[in-house]
């Protein structure tokens, strides 16, 4: 008996890990059957790949101007053409993917958790806590996202860091709303009641039961939101309040290309295509995630 006791905890942990891995494998195999989702994932993997290996993949220096070759058409030297300072657009798009990815990641690690926590607390406690939290959320939701971000950037000063901060401040309220709606359902579920009957505190219920159940909706929403975040970041860049020159931010690149759009269409179009592709990738992935994770869709199926 004593010998089995010393072995048991390890083996049970292994068994648990195996059970989890089996769950994960099932998820992966279901995901792989969704072709559009796989396409979206492929686009995003390409984005990450470009961001990491930008120096190796690039053909020029992203910042060094070469005025003699300004506005060169796409060709053997400049695959996607050159901009108004003679910089290679292909190289700048590669480096720009780093900025895009950074913005996306920062928003993910800030806005979604804030929204999740606010929403879960609000939905679980209800009453006055709920009222206060949700009215604050309403205030943020009442102002158009881009406008609010603009106001923040105007107050904080232009720059990529401030742009990210502004986007985060505008991005969390929808997550709070959604997490609250989920929490309202989950808090009355019998498995939560069972934990309550065992004497669990509200904090325990929120962390262990309610937040994990809101998580899948948050992930789906997050993936679908990423396209919007990228567009807002590009929008801020476009009007000169986001990333500042000479940073190769896609929105700012389109902005400078605007002047040449009729004669040198590639200057604005190439970063535009990059934005389009990445947004498409996030949307396709988001749709696939929703098909797999959304609890409401699941029940129907």
């Amino acid at each position: 008996m004593s010998s089995t006791l010393s072995i048991e905890p390890i083996s049970s942990r292994q068994a648990l890990r195996m059970a989890r891995r089996a769950e994960f494998n099932r998820f992966v195999s279901r995901f792989r059957r969704n072709r559009l989702g796989m396409a979206g994932l492929a686009i995003l993997i390409l984005l990450v790949f470009c961001a990491i290996f930008a120096p190796l993949l690039s053909t020029h220096d992203p910042y060094l101007p070469d005025l003699a070759k300004r506005l060169s058409a796409p060709g053997a030297e400049f695959w996607l053409g050159a901009d108004e300072l003679g910089r290679d657009i292909y190289t700048r798009i590669l480096y720009g993917s780093r900025l895009t990815l950074m913005i996306v990641l920062q928003v993910v690690v800030t806005a979604a958790p804030v929204g999740l926590v606010v929403g879960a607390i609000s939905g679980t406690y209800g009453g006055i806590v709920d009222k206060i939290f949700m009215r604050i959320t309403d205030v943020f939701l009442a102002v158009p996202k881009l406008l609010l971000a603009l106001a923040f950037v105007a107050a904080l000063g232009p720059g990529i860091f401030n742009a990210v901060l502004a986007i985060t401040l505008t991005a969390w309220p929808p997550y709070a709303r959604m997490a609250r709606a989920e929490a309202l359902v989950v808090r009355n579920a019998d498995y939560v009641n069972a934990a309550r009957l065992a004497g669990a505190s509200q904090a325990y219920l929120i962390v262990r039961h309610i937040m994990p159940m809101c998580l899948s909706s948050v992930i789906v929403r997050m993936t679908l939101d990423m396209a919007g975040v990228i567009l807002i970041a590009a929008g801020l860049g476009f009007i000169g309040l986001g990333a500042q020159p000479p940073l190769p931010e896609w929105g700012a690149m389109i902005s400078t290309g605007r002047k040449f759009i009729f004669d040198q269409w590639w200057v604005a179009t190439m970063p535009g295509i990059a934005i389009f592709l990445v947004c498409l990738g996030f949307n396709l992935l988001g749709d696939a995630m929703r098909d797999l994770l959304d609890p409401h869709l699941r029940q129907r199926g």
Partner: peptide, 21 residues
């Protein structure tokens, strides 16, 4: 179908009241 936490393996569900206490 509604009274067990869908993300917990059942040993954890059964152990939960003891953990809480």
């Amino acid at each position: 179908y509604a009274s067990l936490h869908p993300r917990f393996v059942i040993a954890r569900t059964v152990a939960e009241p003891m953990r809480i206490n």
